[in-house]
Each structure stands twice: as structure tokens, then as C-alpha cells.
């Protein structure tokens, strides 16, 4: 059986090699495809902190993905139309600078995650699943009715935003930026799992009573994990919007929340590289099966059922022969 970190390193090596090959072979579409996988992996890596380590089954993570997307969309929209935003009487110009957009995306996502977390973490189990799903739907309908920023039609951005020192219009350079952010998120996750906070969070997931008995506060730990998780998924949303140069309410849709969970699970829940494996597998399936038949979701559904019923540790679990993740 293969060790888990070898799988992770092999994945990352593949994520470097494949786009380089595509660039040499002159196939920019492959680079876009891999970029999409990397961004989805980043979003799933965010969810993995809440879901995998914290045990919080959030079926509303599309909220943060969408907020990241709209942070990019709104800022870039004002920049490209040379209009100012009106923030409670304050005139703020838009921007096309990625670092600023990322900062806004992460901050707003974190604040919203704090509010949603405060409300939903009062509950647990199925209530939490249903309540997060409901909040996701709230943002979805809000985005649809918000006609100032495109409403149901969404908001196109004509030119990809810029990053100092790079030409983000070149696919491989934008890809490198996304991969670097994914690696940073994985590094944070790895450090977190070994840090006192991660260990405490893990303890609170496995046994809240015992965690409480040794003086930990599970509610605060979960809220912190939820905020961090939302912030990372929000960053991924901003990148995703920049990849497509388009934001629309579908970034808030419940299907997307479901797919993010799927990405985490098919890779292996709670595993460091689970989201990366899951996202790559998902994009590959989407591309190949989607090319074969319009009804590829039937096959995806069957694969998911197979994983839930027969391969509980996800793909990494199958490869390493260990069902549970050693978090």
C-alpha cells in the first residue's frame, strides 16, 4: 500500500508537470482545466478544515465561494466602468488589483462566516446541515434579486485582474498564482493539524464532552474553524471568478455546496491532500464523462454511492488501505 504523503507529492508534481507539458504542446485549454481543478481544490481545502478536522457538515459553503466571486465581480465592475461604490456615504473606487480583491474576499467571507457560524453553531447535527443549506439559499436569492450587479444574469468582467509583476492573461502565469495559493492553504492546514488549536478542534469533534472536561470550549473552537474555512473558500471564489471572468448567482447555489462536499469526500475526508485528489478526479470525470454523454451526472451519482457504501476512506483511503484519516 502507498503512503499518504507520497500520493500528495505525486499529485502536486503532476499539477506542475501537466500544465508545463500543455504549454509546450500548445494546449492552453488543458491549462485552464488544471487551473479549474486547482481552484476547486483550494475551495475544498477550505471546507476540509471545517468538515474534516472540525466535523462540521456545512452544506452552505457556496456562500463563501459566491462572496469571493462577487467581491471580485463588484470591485472589478466598478473599476472597468470607472464608477465609485457608495458605501454608506463613502465613495470608494473599484480595483483591478488581485491582492486587494483577495483581501476583500477573505475579509468579507470571514465576517459572514462569523455571523452564520454564530447562528448555526448553536445547533448541531442535522439542524446544522439544514440551517447552513438554508443560509446558502438566502444568499442565492439575494444575488438573484440584486439587479444593480446583474441579478440573475450575472456580471461579466472583460479583462482578467492583474497581479504586480505577473501577466495574468498568460494562462500558465495565472495557473502558477493559483497553485501557489493552494500550496499556501495546504501548508496552513498541515501546520494547523499539528498546532494546539488543530488538536483541540480535533478533540472537540471526537468527543465534545471530554474536550469540555479538560477546559476547552468546543463552540469557540468550531466558530474559529468555520471562519478560517469560510475565508479560504472565499479566496477560491475570487480566483474562480477571475478564471471565468464572470460571476453569477450559481456560485451561491446549493449544488455547488454539495459538490464541494463531494470533492472533499471522494478524495478522503480530513486528509491533507484529500481536496486536491478529489478536485482533480472531479474535473477529470467532468471533462471525460461530460464529453461522452450529457448525462454524466448519473455516472457521478453512481460513483458517489459506491464510495459512500463501499470505500469509506475516499480514493486516498483505497490507495493507502487505511479507511480513517489519521488527523
Amino acid at each position: 500500500m502507498i503512503e499518504e504523503r507520497w500520493i500528495g507529492w505525486a499529485m502536486l508534481a503532476g499539477l506542475v508537470a501537466l500544465p508545463l507539458w500543455a504549454m509546450a504542446a500548445g494546449e492552453p485549454f488543458t491549462i485552464t482545466l488544471v487551473t479549474r481543478a486547482v481552484i476547486l481544490a483550494l475551495a475544498a481545502a477550505g471546507l476540509n478544515i471545517a468538515l474534516g478536522i472540525g466535523g462540521l457538515v456545512s452544506l452552505g459553503h457556496a456562500v463563501f465561494f459566491g462572496i469571493g466571486g462577487y467581491a471580485m465581480g463588484i470591485l472589478a465592475h466598478h473599476a472597468q466602468s470607472y464608477t465609485a461604490m457608495n458605501l454608506i456615504g463613502l465613495e470608494v473606487p473599484g480595483t483591478k488589483l488581485m491582492p486587494v480583491i483577495w483581501l476583500v474576499a477573505v475579509t468579507v467571507s470571514a465576517v459572514v462566516a462569523w455571523v452564520i457560524g454564530k447562528l448555526t453553531l448553536r445547533t448541531s447535527g442535522v439542524y446544522f446541515i439544514m440551517a447552513t443549506l438554508a443560509f446558502g439559499q438566502m444568499f442565492y436569492y439575494f444575488a438573484i434579486s440584486w439587479s444593480a450587479y446583474g441579478g440573475e444574469d450575472g456580471l461579466p468582467i472583460y479583462v482578467r485582474n492583474s497581479f504586480p509583476g505577473l501577466n495574468t492573461l498568460v494562462p500558465i502565469q495565472f495557473f502558477a498564482l493559483c497553485l501557489a495559493l493552494l500550496c499556501a492553504a495546504l501548508f496552513i492546514t498541515a501546520r494547523l493539524r499539528a498546532a494546539p488549536f488543530g488538536l483541540a478542534l480535533n478533540a472537540a469533534r471526537q468527543s465534545p464532552e471530554r474536550a469540555r472536561a479538560v477546559g476547552l470550549d468546543p463552540a469557540r473552537l468550531r466558530l474559529a474553524a468555520f471562519v478560517l474555512s469560510g475565508a479560504i473558500t472565499g479566496l477560491a471564489g475570487a480566483l474562480f471568478a477571475d478564471l471565468n471572468r464572470f460571476v453569477s448567482p450559481t456560485m451561491f447555489s446549493w449544488q455547488l455546496s454539495g459538490e464541494l462536499i463531494v470533492l472533499v469526500i471522494i478524495g478522503g475526508v480530513g486528509r491533507l491532500y484529500g481536496p486536491v485528489v478529489g478536485a482533480c478526479l472531479f474535473v477529470a470525470l467532468e471533462h471525460w464523462l461530460g464529453g461522452l454523454t450529457d448525462y454524466w451526472h448519473v455516472a457521478l451519482g453512481a460513483i458517489l454511492l459506491g464510495i459512500v457504501l463501499f470505500a469509506r476512506g475516499g480514493l486516498i483511503g483505497l490507495l493507502t488501505g487505511k479507511e480513517g484519516a489519521h488527523v
Binding site: 457538515v57 454539495g258 462536499i261 463531494v262 457521478l300 458517489l304 459512500v308
Partner: peptide, 9 residues
């Protein structure tokens, strides 16, 4: 959640 999501698909 995952299995019933698969059923939806």
C-alpha cells in the same frame, strides 16, 4: 448527505 445527494444527481 453524500449518498442522498448522489441520488438527486
Amino acid at each position: 448527505v453524500l449518498a442522498t445527494f448522489a441520488l438527486i444527481l
